[in-house]
Design a binder for these strands. Structure first.
Length: 548
RNA sequence: GGCCCGUUGGUCAAGCGGUUAAGACAUCGCCCUUUCACGGCGGAGACAUGGGUUCGAUUCCCGUACGGGUCACCA
């Protein structure tokens, strides 16, 4: 009875490893081309961090003429949620980070290195596990969870490192015959790596982002095949990234602690290890300390949040790029019209520690992006958002011709408006432009300086009867406003008023504010002339008559 | 607790032994021939801490404090 017999007993149907090595040949790519992957688990809603990872991976692949692929890590069947994979694929599509190779929503594969779901690669992992057992580099372990608990307890008592390693192991040195017999008897088991590591020795590792990190060698006999026959993350990662030809592993830095293990697995399996780039997580301020953006506590952790809020995709991605490479915003300033694809992303410029997620900044990015939209683009985006999330707004926007005029206010000039950061802001900022909404609501008029009712009525009446003419151009309109101010005892110019405030009741700005408020209810609005042009004579007359 | 990593203004961050220590967001003031937004100009605001090394340390080394990650048949 030897290792080979044991291996055959455990994995009788496994193929030779060479079969897979031939099936998945080395990728034929130009020098320097990077093969990068995004490897999510379908265990919950799509996290903004997943988008971040995808953005980085795709960028890297595209920039080097390489490949970006998605591999679904679904080896934990207990945690898998329904439609998990579909949600991930949809999010990648929505945010324009679609992979070159992936499993499709219908379960088929796109690409020659599949299957791209780990649950469908069981035979592959087992083939390699079998090889390790044959070589005496892995072994079946029969310890129960109670036994494992007991070992841990002893270790804690003895103040030694916890885990399954060295002298604490029970099954590592079990005679092959005994193991064989137990398996035949049907005892449950898992497969562990027989770690060749010695923690007194140090390994030097260079992470692309974090730089040099030294660790003690791994000596934990970690499990590689679970009792359900599926591999653990560690084992699957090493085999998949080898077979799929990954050249650089980008992943969250919660994985750095397993670098010694992963490197050891590559070594034991005889594979060349890829480069690693460990990215810092996005953080959230909580009290005095920071913590990772949490799926449970932070709504903004979910990709769906941005869709619901109506933050344009491009804004989300540009903000993420900004976190990835902070020089992006300078580049953006110098290249306002270029596609983000042209930005030269550099992994080495990524931060080593987690940045606080800054929603204010994201909205600023968004504001700038929306300010570059044409009225038509704003209309289309806002309308399609509204149809899903705000029926009242959608109702307003049904009148496309009119809405386009509303969207066009202060949008055609050199310095377009920048007051909209997300589509959910939209309704409030334009609702007064719609007669049926405005006139049928309880309008609270936010008058500022002039609050005397008679004075307001006089101003409005006077304006409507003696000055307003819808055919006026802006200059004429402007002058008339001054004329009205003067006639009513207000200064034509603000400066005049400031020079001699005692001579006037106020200045032209106060008068125009009354007109503004009487028409919109608001003291803060975009350009009044443009608003009046869009509103038209009928609406203006109606609105003013209500005041008088 | 063990093992790793980090610490520049409120936030994101340039910087890589000699700088008036960039820039962006936020904030404050002024200006932009009437509000708001935009834009322009300006202000306030930072190298965690103690030791070294050095002619000179934000930059290099060590300690301390603080923060983060990780120690599963989860990824």
């Amino acid at each position: 009875m030897d290792y080979k017999d044991l291996a055959n007993l455990i994995f009788p149907d496994a193929k030779e490893v060479s079969w897979y090595e031939e099936k998945y040949p080395k990728r034929n790519l130009p020098e320097g081309a990077q093969v990068v992957r995004y490897a999510p688990s379908p265990t919950g809603f799509v996290h903004i961090g997943g988008l971040y990872q995808s953005l980085i991976a795709k960028k890297l692949a595209k920039q080097t003429g390489g490949v970006f692929y998605v591999r679904i890590e679904d080896t934990d069947q207990k945690r898998e949620i329904e439609n998990g994979v579909e949600q991930i694929l949809q999010a990648l599509k929505d945010y324009d980070v679609s992979p070159d190779e992936t499993v499709n929503a219908d379960g088929s594969d796109l690409g020659n290195y599949g299957p791209y779901r780990q649950s469908k690669r069981k035979d592959i992992y087992q083939a390699y596990a079998k090889k390790l057992i044959e070589e005496g580099k892995a072994y079946p372990c029969f310890c129960t969870s109670e036994e494992l608990e007991a070992i841990r307890g002893d270790q804690e008592k003895a103040k030694e490192r916890t885990g399954y390693y060295g002298k604490w192991t029970k099954c590592r040195n079990m005679p092959v015959d005994m193991a064989y017999e137990k398996i035949q008897k049907g005892e449950p088991y898992i497969v562990r790596l027989k770690s060749p590591g010695n923690p007194d020795r140090k390994i030097k590792h260079k992470d692309v982002i974090k730089g040099g990190i030294d660790f003690p060698e791994n000596d934990q006999d970690i499990v590689i095949i679970k009792s359900d026959g599926l591999p653990t993350y560690h084992f699957a990662h090493v085999i998949d990234d080898h077979l799929m030809g990954t050249t650089i592993v980008t992943r969250g830095d919660e994985w750095v602690a397993s670098i010694p293990l992963h490197l050891q697995l590559f070594y034991v399996l005889g594979f060349k290890a890829p480069k690693y780039a460990h990215t810092a997580p996005m953080m959230k301020q909580e009290g005095d300390s920071k913590r990772k953006l949490s799926k449970r506590k932070d709504p903004e952790a979910a990709v769906s949040y941005y869709k619901e809020e109506g933050i344009p995709r491009q804004a989300v991605m540009e903000y993420l790029m900004n976190i990835a490479n902070s020089n992006f915003e300078m580049w953006r300033k110098q290249n306002p019209d270029k596609s983000m694809d042209e930005f030269p992303f550099d992994l080495k410029r990524m931060g080593v520690s987690g940045a606080l997620f800054d929603m204010v900044k994201m909205l600023d990015v968004s504001k700038n992006i929306i300010s570059k939209y044409s009225a038509e683009e704003v209309y289309e985006a806002a309308y399609s958002w509204a149809k899903e999330y705000d029926s009242e707004l959608a109702d307003m926007l049904k009148d496309k011709a009119y809405s386009l005029k509303v969207m066009g206010i202060e949008r055609k000039n050199q310095k377009p408006r920048k007051d909209i950061a997300k589509w959910s802001d939209m309704k409030d900022s334009i609702i007064y432009m719609y007669d049926d909404k405005f006139l049928n609501s309880n309008i609270v008029y936010e008058y500022q300086k002039i609050t005397d009712k008679n004075e307001i009525q006089t101003i409005v009446k006077n304006y409507l009867e003696n000055y307003y003419d819808e055919h006026d151009d802006k200059q004429t309109w402007f002058h008339k406003m001054k004329d009205l101010a003067e006639k009513m005892g207000y200064a034509r110019e603000v400066k005049e008023y400031k020079a001699n405030p005692e001579h006037y009741k106020g200045h032209v700005g106060d008068i125009s504010t009354v007109i503004r408020v009487s028409l919109t209810g608001r003291s803060n609005t975009p350009d009044l002339y443009e608003i009046m042009q869009v509103l038209g004579k009928e609406s203006i007359t109606e609105r003013m008559k209500r005041i008088v």
